[in-house]
Simulated assay, not measured.
Amino acid sequence: MTTTWIAAHRSAVINPHEAFHLFEPRGFTDRTVRQSLRLAGGGEALRIRLSNRYGKEPLHIGGAHLAVRTRGSGIDPGSDTPLRFSGSETITVPVGEDIVSDPVELPVSAGEELTVSLHLPDDTGPSTYTAVPYDIGHAVPGDQLSAEVLEDAEELPTGHYLTGVDVLAPLGTHIAVAFGDSWVEGAFTTPGADNSFPARLGRRLTRGWIVNQGISGNRLLTDEVGEHLLARLDRDVLAVPGVSHVLIHIGLNDIGLPGAQSYPEPPTDIPSADDLIAGLTTLADRIHAAGLIAIGGTLGPYEGTVYDGVDTPEGQAVRRQVNTWLRGPDHPFDAVVDIAAAVADPDRPARIRAEFNSGDGLHVNDAGAKAIADAIDVTLLDL
């Protein structure tokens, strides 16, 4: 059977030196950092992707191990495998660069949980990181790469340096990339349960799978939390091996975060509906130019959110106009999924239904993510 490398896991990363952060960046000195992930698809071998994209200094990795996760920070010691990079167990990652490990001959399947442990002997400075990782990570002093369990470990609320896993899968395997903001990334769903709506949707597919390139706080048009969607399209979607479809939810932070940052003064830089429509059209056109299928998503409801300054009359008007356009005949996407309708309160459609509300009025819980996934016609993702 002819095989090729296909993305089986992705974590979109952000710059710790940005002006605005939803989560506190951090760095490490002489620590073993252990982080887990769940594979969206399987293959007969795999390779790990790490990044020093936003580091200010070269990143020295004193060792990296891969293992099957058991529970918490625990690993199956029989599966513990050193990772190599061009044959070496240590590597220095230059500033601004990503690296890929040598292949590991380990058959893996969809849904399998793996753990990557990194020994970081030097002062890393603030790390290139993922705001909402798959699960809580752990760190301990020194080199404990092969420890079965990390005793008295510090818990890490964010993911560090780990950007993806590729698997060696049959030629012709195709995947979708879920691309967008916190609704895509799965903020406020249960950590470690893999309950974001793209993950739940992926488990409904009969062939292929979905990898997640969401960034909480991300925007379509301007940088704020992470580079904006149009700026990161090439790297986070078009360069992903095996991608054939792109599923999008974006725009809430364009119209909501300006109000939060200017509160209590009226927001002055909310984009118009025409601005967002033009940006979404450009996004769809670039996806089509790469030969991929573009699936748009309506902007989710958020009326009554607890975050000061986010829910404004101006922002709600823009959201309504953009969603009307997306539901109409003139949008440029191959299809549109009505994410908003799947979780909206039928009596107040600008608000999330109570049973789907995570508690902040802006994000859905596990049940809401399931409702979105269940509402999407899987035949749109003919992978």
Score class of each variant (00 low, 15 high):
M1L: 08
A8W: 00
A8E: 07
S11H: 12
V13T: 15
I14N: 00
I14Q: 11
N15A: 09
P16C: 10
H17C: 01
F20Q: 08
L22F: 12
E24V: 14
T29F: 08
T32I: 12
T32F: 05
V33A: 13
R34A: 09
S36G: 14
G43S: 07
L46R: 07
R49W: 01
R53S: 07
Y54V: 07
A64I: 04
A64L: 05
L66V: 08
V68N: 00
V68Y: 00
T70Y: 10
R71V: 13
G72L: 10
S73R: 10
D76V: 06
P77G: 08
S79D: 10
D80Y: 03
L83G: 13
F85N: 12
F85H: 12
E89P: 06
E89N: 09
I91R: 08
T92G: 11
P94Q: 11
V95F: 15
E97Q: 15
S101F: 10
S101R: 14
E105C: 05
E105K: 09
L106D: 00
V108W: 00
V108M: 03
E112Y: 00
E112S: 04
E113C: 04
H119L: 13
L120C: 07
P121N: 09
P126A: 14
Y129S: 11
T130G: 11
T130E: 04
V132T: 13
Y134F: 15
A139Q: 08
A139P: 03
P141S: 12
D143H: 08
D143A: 11
L145P: 00
A147E: 07
L150Y: 01
E151N: 08
D152V: 06
Y161E: 04
L162F: 15
G164D: 06
V165I: 15
P170A: 15
L171W: 07
I175W: 02
I175P: 01
E185H: 02
G186A: 07
N195Y: 03
F197E: 05
G202E: 07
T206Y: 06
W209K: 00
I210T: 03
N212E: 03
N212D: 13
G214E: 02
G214R: 02
I215N: 02
L221N: 07
V225P: 02
D234N: 13
R235W: 04
L238P: 01
A239G: 02
V240I: 14
V240P: 00
G242V: 07
G242T: 05
H245L: 00
D254L: 09
A260L: 06
D269I: 10
D269Y: 05
I270L: 15
S272F: 02
A273F: 00
L276K: 11
A278P: 01
T282G: 05
A284D: 01
D285S: 12
I287V: 15
A290R: 09
T298I: 14
L299T: 14
G300L: 08
Y302N: 14
E303R: 14
G304P: 04
V310A: 10
D311C: 13
G315V: 05
A317M: 06
Q321D: 15
N323F: 11
T324G: 09
T324W: 08
W325M: 04
V337S: 15
A340G: 11
A341N: 11
V343M: 12
A344H: 08
A344Q: 07
D345M: 09
D347C: 05
I352L: 11
R353I: 00
E355C: 06
N357Q: 05
H363K: 12
H363P: 03
G368W: 10
I372C: 03
A373E: 10
D374S: 07
A375W: 02
T379L: 11
D382T: 12
L383G: 15
